[in-house]
Amino acid sequence: MTTRGRSRVARAGVPPRSSLARAEARAGLGLVLPSVVIVVVLVVAPILWSLLLAFKDLRLVELARAPLFGDFSTASIVEVLSSRRLWESMGATFAYSVIGTAGAIVVGLVAALALRKPFRGRGLVRALLLLPYVAPIVATTFAWRTLLNPQYGLVNAWGQALLGWERPVAFLTQRSAPVGLFGLELTVPVALSTVIAFEVWRTFPFAFLFLTARLEALPGDIEEAARMDGATPTQSFRHIVWPQLVPIVAVLTVLRFIWTFNTFDDVYLLTEGRAGTQVVSVGVYNYLVGRGDVGAASAQALLLAIVLAVLIAAYLRLAGRRGGES
């Protein structure tokens, strides 16, 4: 803070630079202005306005006539907070985001390490691994729905033919099922687990991409020295490579958690939020379009926004710290 203030004062003290700097400042503002206007009008202002909408008891059908400012009440917020489904929905959202994030990063790391040594065709394999992430979400969810289809899907067909399943498993429509494991009878949330598995499958390439980039940038000499001194591959990973990956893993964790926590497309397209998979963002959509309840949709979105604000602050601090170090 103080250094920036001082440099501005120092610059103002030198007249010729000051006028140049002023021209530069004017050009800079002018060039960046269109982007800023679009973002402010279509992102920032709507978000702020939706905070107000959360305090209104507004239905879609009244939209044409109802006043959009004023007339505030806490009815929508009370409605959302007192809904029985909210806490179930919050639980599903947290399970989905925590396991989805962790799974994607672990699988991404395993993939990055497995492909670290060059071999013929590595470039192609790397590109193919990114497919789940770059393909259209509607197409990827469709592929999974087809694979898991109880009537003709391959997973159920193979499960019945090769693994001796008695009946097809309704992976996307069954809330929970008992599973016997080592003599223990466990109840597994089927649809939620499937949706989480999809999230891991679809987003591990993102973690893989970042971790690969970081691994390639690591200086090779420390590792080589450690190997010469007799460190085994796992020791060298544990003590040399992993500590250097920690910062990027931290950034990835926050980034993936933010996005997974707010995922709408994946869950909506797989289950429409049924069978115990109604995450908060799908709830927002269902309030808005399903019930036409604008106030409740905004109130539910407000909950997401609060969690998100905390996460973004954490991310900016992490990113800032990294920027300061390098």
Partner: peptide, 18 residues
């Protein structure tokens, strides 16, 4: 711009739709 990049679409759905 960074904050907007991180911001998810679902939060914009309600105000833009309305």
């Amino acid at each position: 711009f960074l904050a907007v990049y991180l911001f998810p679409g679902i939060l914009l759905a309600v105000p833009l739709f309305v």
